[in-house]
Nucleic acid binder design. Structure first.
Lengths: 108, 108
DNA sequence: CAAGATATCTCGGCTCACGATATATTGGAG
DNA sequence: CTCCAATATATCGTGAGCCGAGATATCTTG
């Protein structure tokens, strides 16, 4: 799973959101560190929908603007949880080795 | 930073290793879950060397086979630590939202 | 009235992953 | 003694996917 896909699933884990809302939510949940370009978003969304990890929730017209809401499916929640576990294992491995390195610094 | 790059830096955090040794180490540190294809490895290694995150440590000839060892540089260790922090924040955000979802499950 | 925020989506270029391929040595199985 | 697997290097081409740029439309604010 790619990182943009991971972030989209995360943004949808709380509640159903529309495209632009996902962009805002990703920015918010990363404290402004990550911005999701819309050119990335819609490709990711299509792919995730094709894999059944997200699905169309509803369509609304709010103040003349169409809002297309997506929601996380159960397989999507499982996939996100599995990916989170995988990443956590990677992070743990890196952190352990970095700690060992600080104790006994390299020559470089 | 791409995931293969992250894993290569992690493999080198402990001690200097040669290409094939990195492949083995990545497999080992992920408990066999991740296998790093050599076609991926050498591209990543070149890129990381170009960015100054790893550098050539030494070359040895062991039993007629050339071994080219790479080591993590200090900027490489910093980059790895920064990326680990970033990933950890992503994982935390996903885990929190998934927990909230389990408490109050979605319709999908 | 213009500009910026909100909202959708497409397209093309660039980067990167990785399977396949090439080459060479050592060690073990048959 | 021959063949295959493992060890070791490296390159190349395809395909996937990220994302900047652009197209389109409405509402709000100055």
């Amino acid at each position: 799973m790619t990182e943009p896909a991971f972030l989209v699933l995360t943004a949808l884990a709380g509640e159903a959101r529309h495209g632009y809302g996902i962009v805002s939510e990703v920015e918010r949940l990363s404290d402004g560190r990550v911005s999701m370009p819309v050119g990335t978003l819609y490709g990711v969304l299509d792919r995730l929908a094709g894999e059944g990890l997200v699905e169309l929730d509803r369509e609304e017209v709010q103040q003349g603007r169409l809002r297309r809401y997506y929601r996380l499916t159960d397989p999507g929640a499982e996939a996100l949880a599995a990916e989170a576990r995988r990443l956590e294992a990677n992070v743990r491995a890196a952190t352990e080795r970095l700690r060992a390195r600080r104790t006994r610094p390299a020559t470089a």
